[in-house]
Simulated assay, not measured.
Amino acid sequence: MADYVFLKLDRRDAVAWLTLNRPERRNALTHGMMLELEDVFARVRDDAACRVLVIRGAGGHFCAGGDLDAMADMPPRPANGAEDPLLPAYRQFGNALLALDALPQATISVVEGSAVGGGFGMACCSDVVVLHQSAHFGVPEPKVGFIPSQIIPFLVRRLGEGPMRDLAVTGRVIDAAEAHRLGVGRYLCGTAEEVEATLQALLDDILKMEPAALAAAKRLVLSCATQDDRTVLDAAAESLVSLLRRPQAAEGIKAFKAKTSPSWRKG
């Protein structure tokens, strides 16, 4: 697939594998890396053969938030009331997170080591999070005088307002066990081998799903955060009828009754 400076993207069969690849900086984010992430998510969205995106970090860490050295190297404040050039640069990462959050494919983040700031946000925009016992999460940015601006709505949705308020005002970094308890990730693994076995089992389950049905179910779940119940139920009924009228539904029902595998099932 495409070449990137700060990322690696490969697709093997129906699974895309995205590696954040700045291990010397614990995969901390620069603006160039944020732009590459947005491009990756658009590329995956448009890849009809891709059914799952797996996100990992190189070198034993997921993502250590924003690169402080890159953030310190900022242009001067504009004169004459012009828009600060930092505004669109930082807002862009929010667009990347929205794109990840809305992907029609299933998304899995495998989190080892540091996942603070933007790394925390990417995990919370993933459908499934696998936690290695070394994982740790937090929003410590206010300790050094700024905030993790673009990740906040995604963290609130995943953790709830109460836990997020606690983290926002204390700057605590939580370990994998607490992240598991708070619902950041549902799978807590003690060893690298357990991580790989858990990931493979998840892929096996996801690749049994019919892709359009998976995308519709995911879209409806996400819509519950922003739409009223009647709107969601109307959309769900329309989606159900549309899916039932596709040949894949007839094939799936026939295969289920006959205890055979439909054509989309992998493995």
Rank of each mutant, 00 (worst) to 15 (best):
A99V: 07
L100M: 05
L100K: 02
D101P: 00
D101L: 05
D101V: 05
A102R: 12
A102K: 07
A102Q: 14
L103S: 01
L103A: 01
P104K: 07
Q105N: 07
Q105R: 01
A106D: 03
A106F: 03
T107N: 02
I108L: 13
S109N: 08
V110I: 14
V110T: 02
V110K: 02
V111C: 07
G113T: 06
A115G: 03
V116T: 15
V116H: 06
G117W: 12
G117V: 04
G118E: 10
G118P: 00
G118N: 15
G119D: 13
G119T: 12
F120S: 04
F120K: 08
G121T: 10
G121V: 05
M122V: 15
C124R: 13
C124P: 00
C124M: 14
C125S: 12
C125I: 04
V128Q: 13
V129S: 02
V130I: 15
L131A: 03
H132P: 01
P140S: 13
E141T: 04
V144R: 14
F146E: 02
F146P: 00
P148W: 05
S149M: 13
I152A: 09
F154W: 10
R157W: 04
R157P: 00
R157F: 05
R157S: 09
R157M: 07
R158G: 01
L159H: 11
L159V: 06
E161V: 09
G162Q: 12
P163K: 11
P163H: 11
M164G: 01
R165N: 07
D166V: 03
L167H: 07
V169F: 13
V169S: 11
T170P: 00
T170W: 10
G171L: 14
G171S: 03
R172C: 06
V173T: 09
A176T: 08
A177T: 08
A177Q: 14
A179E: 03
A179G: 15
A179H: 03
A179R: 03
A179L: 04
R181M: 07
L182E: 08
G183K: 09
V184M: 09
V184Q: 05
R186S: 14
R186L: 14
R186W: 03
R186C: 04
Y187E: 11
C189Y: 07
C189R: 04
T191I: 11
A192S: 12
A192P: 01
A192T: 07
E193V: 00
E193G: 02
E193D: 15
E193Y: 01
V195L: 04
E196T: 12
T198E: 10
L199V: 12
Q200Y: 02
A201P: 01
A201I: 08
A201N: 09
L202P: 00
